[in-house]
Design a protein around this nucleic acid. Structure first.
Lengths: 208, 208
DNA sequence: GCAGAATATGAGCGATCATTCGCTTTCGAT
DNA sequence: ATCGAAAGCGAATGATCGCTCATATTCTGC
């Protein structure tokens, strides 16, 4: 039975010393990903930067993929923590303020750790085990779909599925591009303008 | 003086035999990229698939990057050929038909060789020499910007730069996502619906 | 303070990669 | 038919990678 390389920790750390080792490894992986890119993140290099031996690395992670997966999970959790509190109340809001808040949230999510987000979004191979781990969309898509269903009356579209696809794709791309490739936009009032225009794009499409 | 790995052919082929070799190498690179991904595209493997020795490969290409760059160039040229004839007349069209044609063109561009386009967009490392080569946006952005300037009167936006950024980003992301991740959308009338909705998204934003 | 479990080490193995170079084959002009 | 140039070849080199394992160190419960 051919065993594929797993993505989960090989064993869990019980002492505080080993927990520190694990933390150092994940942190080192993130630092290398941001500063030198995915290719340069070899297990040897990660261990070196973490100030730990390769052997120790393999005690807790079955391979490079698992390290990267851990970084992705940590990043996603940071984003969720910075965002999740607002989601519930948005569902009850009318269209325009809801959309504006959603766009603002998307921008904020992208600003948690922009460089890391960039690497995760653009350099992580989209094949193999990491393909799904690096993809956030489903969550956002479902959320937006739910909102549209609950506010079906206020909205001027037939195909909610298609509409959700269009809105989520547009918002995601807008914030992603803005944060990652035009980060000058983000300082001061330029960001406000971006949020305004993004919100106008979506509301204009939904209520016409 | 440290020489960085170039992206240009080492020497140009003069006989037809060698031109066939070069063609076979580029074709093999594209095939491997599509079927097995960027990682598996090693120089040895490319030469093998092309039915050519590694030595010959290095006669015409200084390295792997140059091969991939050649594939990108070829793909971009194919897209341009399938599209460029229409661009001139669009500039003279009024807003709604112009936007609709632009969206339709974007979809068509993404359908020239979807799988290759997917690999080029999502698997090619965004660092190093290939970063810029794989990016089409500037061209589209400039084109759209030009259109907005000429039709400044018909449009309800102040910041043309920002508006162009938003429109191009949205269209690009929409077609990209649709073609690459929901290709079922593309058959039959679903694609028409996508084009309609995409056009409505943009025109709704521009004229409100 | 002691035993055993947990943790850490790093040289080294085998695989793979990009790249080179001495050599052979083929082409084109005479 | 001949010869120099162009094209092609592929074993070999050295670098790098992921990963293992025999060994050494540290911690924890008693």
């Amino acid at each position: 039975m051919a065993r594929k390389p797993a993505t989960k920790p090989r064993k869990s750390a019980s002492q505080q010393r080993s927990r520190a080792t694990v933390e150092a490894l994940v942190e080192a992986t993130a630092r290398i990903l941001v500063k030198e890119g995915f290719d340069k993140a070899s297990t040897n290099r990660i261990a070196e930067v973490a100030g730990v031996s390769v052997g120790s690395l393999y005690q807790y992670f079955p391979g490079k993929e698992a390290l990267v997966a851990a970084v992705i999970q940590r990043h996603q959790q940071e984003i969720r923590q910075a965002v999740q509190s607002e989601l519930a109340e948005i569902l009850a809001l009318p269209l325009e303020p809801a959309v504006r808040r959603l766009v603002a949230i998307a921008v904020r999510a992208h600003r948690v750790d922009p460089k890391l987000h960039c690497v995760l979004a653009e350099q992580i191979p989209r094949i193999g085990r990491l393909a799904e781990a690096a993809r956030f969309d489903p969550e956002n898509f479902t959320l937006f779909r739910t909102y549209l269903e609950r506010h079906r009356e206020e909205v001027r579209v037939d195909d909610l599925e298609l509409a959700a696809f269009i809105c989520v794709t547009a918002i995601e791309a807008l914030t992603h591009n803005a944060v990652l490739h035009y980060s000058k936009m983000l300082s001061d009032d330029r960001m406000e303008a971006l949020i305004d225009e993004g919100a106008r794009l979506i509301t204009g499409y939904l209520k016409d």
